[in-house]
Design a protein around this nucleic acid. Sequence first.
DNA 1: GTCAGTGCAAACTTTTTGCAACTAC
DNA 2: GTAGTTGCAAAAAGTTTGCACTGAC
Lengths: 158, 158
Amino acid sequence: MKKEVKDILSKYLEQNKMRKTVERFAVLDAAYSFDTCFTMEELKTLLEYRSFPISRATLYNSLKLFKRLKLIICHKLQQGTKYEAALSINSNCHQICTLCGKVSKIDSKEISSIVWNTRLKRFHMDSFSLYVYGMCSNCVAKQTRKRNRNNKRRVQTN
Amino acid sequence: MKKEVKDILSKYLEQNKMRKTVERFAVLDAAYSFDTCFTMEELKTLLEYRSFPISRATLYNSLKLFKRLKLIICHKLQQGTKYEAALSINSNCHQICTLCGKVSKIDSKEISSIVWNTRLKRFHMDSFSLYVYGMCSNCVAKQTRKRNRNNKRRVQTN
DNA sequence: GTCAGTGCAAACTTTTTGCAACTAC
DNA sequence: GTAGTTGCAAAAAGTTTGCACTGAC
């Protein structure tokens, strides 16, 4: 895990007179070990695998804290809640496959700049999330193969 | 409710040999009576108020159907799931107050056009949702008043 | 008359809460 | 030592499911 991330948590805990517990740092480290989105269950499993069994309550508490510190972001998707390590990001764009649920980042400075420069009515923006829905190329290919098989079968039975 | 909306449901049910039940149309009508986002509970309450008590299972079933038909959209927010009547929209932008949870639409052709024209890697887009987080002007004002009060008190006690 | 759709209750999943025990300070 | 945290279990909230009954066709 990046030292930077640990330091942010450490500093925040000091400044707010909160305790530097082993659990908080273990959860943060685990969260930053995934190179993509993870679920609460996956996080719990990883920690158990690392011989650090932890209660759900503590996981939820820690993640709530990390969210506030912008050390992670939380996606409430149709297929359930996913978390993602993301240092101090206040704008994020993701593409989500509606078939397999895969989530990947989109990098676009144009989108960011347009959104930040949008004039909002009676509102003060401090972050945004963009979710693009559709199908990943894997699922498109899978669907095409399936369609081809069905067409063949139809031809054969005719 | 717009005749158009009813017709879309009606046609879909016919084409898919599904039944035109009183419940489905009552739920659709209720969903389109809100002029803003609504929760499942609010929808149930409205229907009860209209002397049309309905079970949660049927509500979930109906809303799932309407989602598929793009007659409503579903927002999974931190403060819970909210639904919204929205006819055949496949791109939507909303601003969400992180204090009071108020959701309002953002109308921006620039954002839409930029997102639709973004080249995505290994992905075929068919819709998107943009969520802008921050504070609505009501909550900004409330916070300012609170801060002023606290400052006054601090001055008096000094 | 038939079977898709509904109501109800139970099950299940996800998240929160209350409280005793623990431990970082 | 003590108050902030944790673990556990129970509760709450949100959603899905199984099954008997109903009503749209």
